[in-house]
Design a protein around this nucleic acid. Structure first.
Length: 742
DNA sequence: CATTATCGGGG
DNA sequence: GTGTACGATAATG
């Protein structure tokens, strides 16, 4: 069973397949040569085979050219199959080749190409060959943002078959291994890793934090070993990726972002959401204090261990889904765990294209203007009771299948009866590429769900989930301008049909005397007068008998109350609060704004907007009177470039410039913390650091904190009750328009 | 209103 | 690495 792969170059390009069949082995495969296709409008094989270029002072040439028959967009065409000695020769030679013919499949990474062409199914027998998983996490001694240049790693925690913490100050627990110093800690940790020899290392944000940090510290400490030689931190446009040869690093953070819908994705939040219990947490500002004394160092060790354990547990819950995605898509775990769903769809389509002898279209070039998306109804604002949510089961996939939407079927000479609201029509006779793959996915999912009723096999659940994720990503893939099968017309037709179906259902719901409160793309929110859902069931049956298969409207859930503010902004309550688009969670808001918002949202959903109004008045009063602790007023913003590069300078940039003039060290990437002091003028001219604020005994600007912080945060919620800003602020006490919402 | 800039996760 | 590619939201002009 293959769990990872890479390639090296000797005389030939060698794909190394990392396998586990009982025990581990590395298999070499030299059967695939790098290649691309050139459209053969005429046979120019001889010309093409002489093309050479220079790369780093070395001459590289096309290795071979042969004529092959392939399909392109469903039509038989002749292509030159152009082979190379080295994958890296492709980018060096393709520009020159492009001068003579149209080229295709010139940008497919070699190992991915190998997986598609050889029909590799990674992790095919994972139930028989369970992979050894180990999580890791580091703790850093820092004041403010951690900086690898000066702030040492103080603990490394791991979890797997056992929990272990490496620390270079004593802590009296059996799981802590005491090390002499930081260097000794790293060395012991690396040899531990070598002994354990896991196939998978799990982290939480290890791509951007733990591994880059470890690498930098080891460089500073001049530690060298095989593990570090095999560790690669690749810079991407956004963030980085940390990989090792023969060990799959899976960073759970990006997976959780894609898989769960939360407002925040800290380890603590994710853990709580998944397991319903609070994970051990500490104020990271206190780490230096805990580290200092032997009796409190335990707290730190426990925290370190709990992070590694939580990461491991999250992995145990979500790796199976990644495994299934690997098997369906046919690419390696490292890539699958970091790929957007659009990219997963692309790998899958490319593999199918190879099997059908189709040449893969080239990537799109970028945005070609926007078009209309799903229908979003302006909600009936305010608090509603007995809310039922209905949604279309896989709306876009079922539309694509039902109407056979594909770049190859668009505007055929036949089938003029299958017309989208956009005016384009689609051929119903052809077995189209994308709809047929999509149909296979949905049918497979149906079978698995059926099987799940009698079969206990847990992997079935993850199989159907993986299939659902992929199916639901096809529309986004068609609509993504950089994708290889991008088609604005197809995407547009899909959403247009979607709007038509949703509007029809909404009208129908109204005819059945439900009150429609809100609807977005594939869902509608209705109220029923009481908690009896029988009428809804009837309505669903009737609707579904009329919808073309596989389209289906489903019952999503019942909620005691629902608060609707504007399009895309609402909250539902059924013992638990579920919010969409309402909460502010970012660090560039002050604590007072965040806290106030949280408390009024909860109050409102329990049916007490008056109380919420009182809370707001009380907070604004406290701000006016200067009663708010200044810690709650601090705003943190990152300096992302040198101050002189800014075209528009925000408050934090002005503060950073002043600090630099005063000779303080301010670096790009630093978080600038500031408060807004009382006075006239622009916000940025009133921004001062915490130290300046305290030293000069400034007063804060109550108007700023009310107008720009607390009010925007709470007004998102309170406008739904007809409150205006003026009625909520401290000065006035009038509450108008309240009764009409009840 | 459009344009420019920032957030996230980690300590 | 035969790969450029986040998506949402706030502040400024």
């Amino acid at each position: 069973m293959i769990y990872d792969a890479d390639y090296i170059v000797e005389e030939k390009t060698i794909v190394r397949l990392f396998e586990k069949n009982g025990k581990k082995a590395i298999r070499h495969d030299t059967t695939l040569e790098p290649y691309i296709y050139g459209l053969a409008e005429e046979d120019i094989s001889r010309k093409l085979s002489t093309i050479c270029a220079e790369r780093r002072g070395e001459k590289v040439c096309v290795k071979n050219v042969e004529l092959v028959e392939k399909y392109f967009a469903g039509k038989k065409r002749l292509f030159h199959k152009i082979t190379f000695r080295h994958p890296q020769d492709v980018p060096s030679l393709r520009e020159e080749i492009k001068m003579f013919c149209k080229i295709f499949e010139y940008d497919i990474p070699f190992v991915k190409r190998f997986c598609m062409d050889r029909g590799i199914v990674p992790l095919e027998h994972i139930e028989r060959n369970p992979l050894k998983v180990m999580s890791l996490d580091i703790e850093v001694l820092c004041h403010g943002a951690p900086n690898a240049r000066g702030d040492p790693v103080i603990m490394i925690s791991t979890w797997g078959e056992r929990g272990k913490v490496f620390s270079w100050k004593r802590a009296d627990t059996e799981y802590v291994e005491f090390c002499k110093d930081e260097r000794d800690m790293f060395e012991r940790f690396f040899s531990f890793l070598q002994e354990e020899d896991p196939e998978i290392i799990l982290t939480y944000n290890g791509d951007n934090f733990d591994f880059p940090y470890i690498e930098e510290r080891c460089r500073i400490l001049r530690i060298k070993n095989a593990f570090l030689d095999n560790l690669a931190i690749k810079k991407r446009t956004r963030g980085s990726e940390a990989s090792m040869v023969g060990i799959v690093h899976v960073d759970m953070y990006p997976i959780m972002r894609r898989t769960m819908s939360l407002t925040r994705y800290t380890l603590e939040d994710v853990y709580f959401e998944l397991f319903g219990v609070e994970k051990k947490d500490i104020d990271t500002g206190l780490i230096p204090k805990y580290w200092e004394k032997e009796d409190t160092r335990m707290i730190l060790a426990e925290y370190a261990l709990s992070d590694a354990e939580a990461t491991y547990k999250i992995g145990a819950s979500f790796l199976p889904l990644q495994y299934e995605l690997c098997r369906i898509v046919g690419q390696m775990l490292f890539d699958i765990s970091r790929s957007s769903t659009s990219l997963l769809v692309e790998y899958l389509l490319m593999r199918h294209a190879f099997q059908k002898n189709e040449v893969v279209p080239n990537k799109g070039h970028g945005s070609e203007g926007t078009y209309e998306g799903g229908f979003v109804m302006e909600p009936r604002k305010g608090l509603h009771e007995h809310v039922v949510v209905l949604d279309f089961k896989s709306l876009y996939p079922s539309i694509i299948i039902t109407h056979n939407i594909d770049p190859q079927t668009i505007d055929c000479p036949c089938c003029k009866n299958n017309v989208a609201p956009t005016g384009h029509h689609f051929c119903m006779k052809k077995d189209a590429f994308i709809p047929s793959i999509l149909k296979t996915l949905l049918e497979k999912r149906g079978e698995i769900k059926k099987k799940m009723k009698s079969d206990e096999d847990k992997s079935l659940y993850f199989q159907q989930w993986a299939l659902k994720i992929l199916a639901n990503s096809f529309y986004g893939y068609l609509a993504y301008p950089l994708s290889r099968w991008y088609s604005k017309e197809c995407a547009e037709a899909t959403t247009a049909w979607g709007r038509q179906y949703l509007k029809t259902i909404m009208e129908s719901a109204q005819k059945h005397h439900f009150s429609v409160i809100y609807g977005d793309t594939d869902s509608l929110f209705i109220t029923m007068g009481d908690a009896n859902t029988d009428n809804v069931r009837h309505f669903l049956e009737e609707v579904n008998s009329q919808l073309p298969s596989p389209m289906e409207l489903e019952y999503e859930g019942y909620y005691q109350t629902g608060l609707f503010v504007t399009k895309k902004k609402y909250a539902l309550y059924n013992g638990k609060i579920l919010t969409r688009g309402l909460e502010i969670v970012r660090r560039d808001w002050s604590k007072i704004a965040r806290d106030t918002q949280k408390s009024i949202l909860s109050t409102v959903l329990q049916g007490n907007p008056q109380t919420a109004a009182e809370i707001i008045k009380d907070v604004t009063k406290r701000i006016k009177n200067g009663d708010v602790p200044i810690e709650d007023l601090v705003i943190n913003t990152q300096l992302t470039m040198p101050p002189s590069h800014y075209k528009t300078k925000g408050a934090h940039v002005i503060v950073a410039e002043r600090l630099m003039e005063e000779g303080q060290e301010v670096r790009v990437g630093d978080i600038i913390s500031f408060l807004v002091k009382k006075g006239k003028g622009l916000i940025r001219d009133k921004a001062v650091t915490y130290e300046e604020f305290v030293k000069n005994k400034y007063e804060y600007d109550p108007d700023y904190y009310i107008q720009n912080q607390v009010m925007p945060a709470v007004m998102r919620i309170m406008t739904a009750f007809g409150y205006t800003e003026d009625t909520l602020k401290y000065e006035k006490s009038e509450q108008k328009g309240l009764e009409e919402w009840f």
